[in-house]
């Protein structure tokens, strides 16, 4: 993420854990001068309506993302292999959260 000249603050990605036991999920992004301030801004922007119990902030520049151009080689081969999904089992009665 270059293009942040002129003293602009770097971009941070925010991950919020909704409650104990859940994983942190991506909530959005924000600008902040450093990690400590990013955490505080994240608190104000993403948890002020009690959305979370834990926060992570990660510099956006540290994230390596897959490219839209490589979408086909990356994801297409998975589309026609139903045997990779556990869909051929009968789920016993009474088993929830599967």
């Amino acid at each position: 993420m270059s293009g942040e000249g002129n003293g602009a603050w770097p971009l941070w990605e925010v991950f919020v854990r909704g409650r104990r036991g859940l994983a942190h999920t991506h909530a959005g992004s924000l600008h902040a001068p450093d990690a400590e301030m990013a955490l505080r801004n994240a608190r104000d922007l993403y948890t002020r309506r009690s959305e979370g119990v834990s926060l992570w902030v990660v510099p956006s520049a540290s994230i390596t993302a897959s490219s839209p151009d490589e979408k086909d080689p990356f994801f297409e081969p998975a589309a026609d292999k139903p045997y990779r999904h556990p869909t051929f089992y009968e789920i016993p009665e009474g088993v929830r959260h599967l």
Binding site: H31, N41, D44
Partner: peptide, 11 residues
Amino acid sequence: PVLEEEVALAN
């Protein structure tokens, strides 16, 4: 000065 700070002050 920035949107993030505006929300912080409003909070």
